[in-house]
Amino acid sequence: MLVHTTLAFTPQRVPLGILHQQVWTRSPETYGKKHQRKKRAITEKESQKWLNSPEAARTIHKESPDTLVISVGDREADIYELFHHASDYPQSCHLLVRAAWDRKVEHPQKYLWPSMETQPVADTFEVIVPRKKNKSERSAHIDIRFAPLTLLPPQNKSRLGPLTLWAVYVNEPSPPHGEEPLSWMLLTTLKVESLDEALCLVNYYSVRFSIELFHKVLKSGCTIEKRQLQTAEGLIRCLALDSLVAWRIMFLTMIGRAVPQLPCTVLFGEHEWKALYCFINTTKTLPLFPPSLQEATRLVARLGGFLGRERDGFPGTEVLWRGMQKLASISAAWFAFGPHTV
Rank of each mutant, 00 (worst) to 15 (best):
G323M: 10
Q261E: 15
S139Q: 12
L235N: 07
P181W: 06
A56Y: 02
P15C: 02
P130W: 07
V259H: 03
Q325K: 14
I280F: 08
T188Y: 09
F314E: 15
W113P: 00
G316Q: 08
L239S: 00
T164L: 03
V217E: 03
Y204D: 02
L276W: 04
D312S: 15
V105E: 00
H340D: 15
A328Y: 11
T59V: 12
W184S: 05
L151T: 02
H61Q: 14
E76G: 05
K110C: 05
Q325M: 12
E172T: 09
R208V: 08
L235Y: 12
L19I: 00
K219T: 10
R26L: 12
P15H: 00
L187C: 07
G221C: 05
V319D: 02
A336N: 13
H35T: 13
T10V: 03
K135P: 00
A240R: 10
V266G: 10
K62D: 13
Q119C: 10
L82V: 09
I60H: 14
F83R: 01
L262K: 02
Q91M: 08
R13I: 00
R322M: 11
A8Y: 04
R227C: 04
A333G: 07
I224N: 00
G269W: 09
T265G: 04
T189D: 08
L244N: 10
V217F: 00
E179Y: 11
P108M: 08
L293T: 00
E126R: 11
L186A: 03
L218K: 01
P28H: 12
L160M: 10
F83Q: 02
W334C: 02
P339D: 11
T118E: 15
G73F: 08
A246T: 01
V105A: 03
R138F: 02
E180K: 15
M254L: 09
P108R: 09
V72I: 15
E318I: 05
G338A: 09
L112P: 04
E106I: 08
E44V: 01
Q48M: 14
L152A: 10
P114H: 05
P263K: 08
L96D: 00
L293I: 02
F125T: 06
P130E: 08
I236T: 04
F268P: 02
P176R: 07
F337W: 12
K39D: 14
L199R: 15
V3C: 10
L68P: 03
W184V: 04
I255N: 07
C200T: 09
Q228S: 12
S71Y: 03
P181M: 07
N52E: 15
D66G: 05
S136G: 05
Q228I: 07
W247D: 09
T6P: 00
T25Q: 14
A41M: 11
S206A: 13
E193Q: 12
G221T: 06
K326D: 11
L160R: 06
A258M: 08
V245C: 11
W101M: 13
G221V: 04
H20F: 13
P260R: 01
L235F: 13
G73E: 06
T188I: 11
T150L: 05
H177R: 13
I330S: 02
R131Y: 06
A240V: 10
S64K: 13
